[in-house]
Design a protein around this nucleic acid. Structure first.
Lengths: 210, 210
DNA sequence: TAGATTGTTAATCGATTAACAATC
DNA sequence: TAGATTGTTAATCGATTAACAATC
């Protein structure tokens, strides 16, 4: 691990995907140079924070000029590990799993969804967006012979912990969890949660007080 | 607006859904009393933070006893506005919109998904999970006669801003956005974003450095 | 060179943690 | 009453903002 990057505060790291998103948009609108001041009014954060954030990684800019959008975009992508070509599987092919399998945004960010798993015999053996659907019983066998970085879990709440334990036992250390529950793990396993109903609850709260 | 609640820091408010989720689980496992210390080891936060957080709302506990789970759960639910029975519509009935329409977790949290909208003539007029699918052209007409608190947007990136503008023009002030972009709004409009690919990028980052 | 804008230090602000008196 | 645990103040820690010298 890079000496510099390991000291990045979590709060800074969490802002990186948003920077990356804005830089992608700038890039496709043909902007090739931006100052922290311009980016700041675009993103509604302070220019000071932007410069401070970027400096955790050594600074990407040039005095008097600003930042080169293409370089900045590429570099933040690398910091996020998007150039590694992470491979993923989706477990649980309900509507949500299907939506993810069809979500081409993921491939645009360098993730490859290599296979899908479900217990429903009606879809096992079929293909979705060109990806094979295997029976969840085959998980261990599949992972043994296919290097996989990330398991995306879109299974029912009740089976989430069990499925998580199984893929972790096979050596997977990154989980993207869509169930409305939290997964208990040992240290060294990274879990990111996407809790739909948390977002809805926050919205309800903000509607009340804003 | 309550004098106390309006000064709650955003960082505290953002923790409320998680508390609510844990309290729901405790409630259904029949636990009816819990101390900040117990909750702290369960949730992996400090007991001090828990007590501090709860105190922004006046304090719900009793010295020497702890907190009554049912009361705490109910009260945080009220603070979040879950007792208001927020009504919602879903715009965009792709796989993701379908997943949301079938996601009964939402109703459990007091949200009522009242109608769905899409432009695909093949599904307009049908029902999904008992909810009518209308043509998106009918949005304004529907909103005129049906009080709606929240619009859930699961439309393609390109049309997101346009659809948002339309529902805001009809008086909706709460948006739950699933598109991989950000919506520009005037003050007074609450937007919560669920960015799948941000979560995936963070996971990639954490895999790299943890 | 003059102007612009970064990189970086210092000042401020806010959030978290520690500690303990109040009280059930 | 004694023990437990909250509510709350004070101390610490960390994050954000301001400011400006360095430099392209």
């Amino acid at each position: 691990m890079n000496e510099i990057e390991k000291n990045v505060p979590a709060v800074v790291a969490k802002r990186l995907p948003r920077y990356y998103r804005y830089l992608s948009e700038l890039l496709s609108s043909g902007v090739n140079r931006i100052s922290s001041g311009e980016l700041s009014s675009l993103m509604n954060v302070t220019a000071s924070q932007i410069r401070q954030d970027f400096n955790y990684f050594g600074g990407f800019g040039q005095q008097g000029y600003g930042y080169n959008v293409e370089y900045l975009h590429k570099t933040i992508g690398e910091i996020l590990g998007l150039d590694k070509g992470n491979s993923a599987i989706v477990i649980g092919v309900g509507n949500l799993g299907r939506a993810i399998a069809n979500h081409d945004q993921f491939e645009k960010r360098g993730f490859k969804i290599a296979a899908l798993f479900d217990i429903d015999e009606n879809i096992v053996g079929k293909q979705i967006n060109g990806k094979n659907v295997y029976h969840t019983d085959e998980l261990e066998k599949y992972l043994e012979s296919n290097k996989t970085d990330i398991a995306i879990l879109t299974v029912p709440v009740e089976t989430t912990q069990d499925v998580a334990d199984r893929v972790i036992a096979c050596g997977i250390s990154g989980l993207l969890n869509f169930s409305d529950t939290e997964i208990k793990t040992e240290k060294g396993i990274s879990v990111e949660n996407v809790h739909f109903s948390d977002a809805l609850m926050m919205l309800s709260y903000r509607l009340k007080y804003e």
